[in-house]
Design a protein around this nucleic acid. Structure first.
Lengths: 113, 113
DNA sequence: CATCGATATCGATATATATTGATATCGATA
DNA sequence: TATCGATATCAATATATATCGATATCGATG
């Protein structure tokens, strides 16, 4: 299943009903955001210096096992919220601002109809 | 558990790490958005004439049982994404634009740091 | 090439959730 | 008040998911 691309031409949620396919694509991303650990991972990565954080930074920030953090990173990457790059022994994660921006736009409320 | 209020003073996700409590509050709302049926319900309600729709409008729009729609409406209401009002035999649902706006703001990406 | 540290994958489990049929509630009305 | 239509709640079930220990992979380094 592709990362995203489903939001490309999405209009704000309030303009017209989403069809089933659009809704399924968007829901995947929101579902990924619907976990407190993943939200914290995103905010840690985004606010980390250089806009990136390695897995070791993240495992250190939680009282959770390394496989659990790895699982959440995979979920966030699969829906297009994070990208990763390996450098030497470490893997660095970055947010994908376009995905956040698309979701933000989808939720933005028109000045009232 | 209260509807929301947890997002009141949230800064964009990218500014500083969310603490556990903030993340839990926000995650509840995103989790509610993480289902295609609920996203479609929201978009139908929001784009319906007058900005509201009754349950009968919604059950008619899905190939799902009435209890299932009622369940999803309850979830959306519990996290502060919908409000309801009973008029005669019908219950009308409306979106809570403030909640959408708060989420939108949380996901909005600064012009790059 | 053997080893070590960092990260990902696997298998198992406990919990959460989406869905439904049956039933309760609630307002309107005869 | 008996009944009817609209909606909510309940109980049960099937599926999904968060978590972890064990293990595999992968790059660096001796």
């Amino acid at each position: 299943m592709e990362p995203l691309e489903l939001l490309e031409c999405s209009s704000p949620l309030t303009r017209e009903p989403l069809d089933g396919e659009q809704a399924a694509g968007v829901a995947r991303v929101f579902k990924a955001l619907g976990d407190p650990v993943r939200l914290r991972i995103l905010s840690i990565v985004a606010s980390h210096q250089g806009g990136e954080a390695c897995v070791c930074d993240l495992t250190a920030a939680f009282d959770l096992s390394q496989p659990t953090i790895s699982h959440h990173l995979k979920v966030l990457k699969e829906v297009g919220l994070l990208t990763s790059e390996r450098r030497a022994s470490w893997v660095y994660y970055r947010i994908v601002p376009e995905t956040l921006a698309e979701l933000s736009g989808l939720l933005s409320v028109p000045v009232t109809v």
